[in-house]
Design a protein around this nucleic acid. Structure first.
Lengths: 147, 147
DNA sequence: TATAACTATGTGCGTACGCACGTAAATACT
DNA sequence: AGTATTTACGTGCGTACGCACATAGTTATA
């Protein structure tokens, strides 16, 4: 008996709606980091040379491209990110993780990971987690391709 | 080689970020229904007697409990939902799907389902979809239990 | 029954968000 | 080279959102 497609998608929506505010509050209370900041710091940390242009950041992060400008503004004011000019393109600007930004990310990561495990991963078998990851990545690849 | 828990969760976040705005725009352009409206109508349609109290609606829908009041206001103005008093509890009020609401939902559903298939389900095998649905439901059940 | 504690709902208000637009730089075209 | 088109970015502005609080009705306590 195959699942209804809408039910599977609906379950994903509900999980997102239930867990994201929870993770956000937990990060904020423990470290003063909104989930948006954490997400941006995470992406920058994973990027080559720990920096990305605004456009790249808008593509990979959960936040929209236009929103990135203001979030990076906030992060710069907090000292966690620096705006570096792009020598190869005068229009472009890099958002680069500062040492303070890395430190903040390292400090917040255990809180975030613990919450993700407790609320999400601990309820999945290893096989389920693997299937989930590969399946979601396929969806993501298809979505990114036709953009 | 087991997946990192954060990567799996991160993939879910990215899929949500990529697909939700797309579904919203598509529903809006084709039928003038924001995704929020569609979600509320869907939950009401699935409920016994096609109605729910505000609190119940806030729990099952993706929208927060406080937000429900205003969304239902809009739906009432649009004629898709009616506010029925609850005879058993004077504080409470039902949001009940009107015939026009059911019609709107029936009309919008094909658009929504087609988009969900195209962007999501078509990229999954049947087995993956089944694992996804059951896994996400387990997460959801655990999250709802300790609330 | 009278009062206290609790629950369901609506609303004021500040924040987060993304679209539409403007600006500046790079690329394509002649 | 000079002009037009495209691209990357930031900002004004209106909308969506949820928290904190107020209100009214219900349940528990004495």
């Amino acid at each position: 008996m195959p699942e209804d497609v809408a039910d599977t998608w609906g379950a994903l929506l509900k999980v997102h709606a239930a867990l994201v505010p929870l993770l956000d509050r937990e990060l904020q209370e423990a470290h003063g980091l909104p989930l948006t900041w954490y997400d941006v710091l995470l992406e920058l940390n994973a990027a080559p040379e720990r920096r990305l242009t605004m456009g790249q950041l808008g593509s990979v992060a959960a936040v929209s491209r236009t929103r990135v400008s203001r979030v990076v503004d906030e992060l710069v004011r907090a000292g966690l990110v620096a705006r570096d000019p792009n020598p190869d393109d005068g229009r472009s600007a890099f958002a680069a993780l500062t040492p303070a930004g890395r430190t903040a990310l390292r400090k917040a990561a255990p809180t975030y990971l613990a919450a993700v495990r407790r609320e999400f991963a601990d309820h999945l078998t290893v096989r389920e987690a693997d299937v989930l990851a590969s399946a979601l990545r396929k969806v993501l690849a298809a979505s990114g391709r036709e953009r």
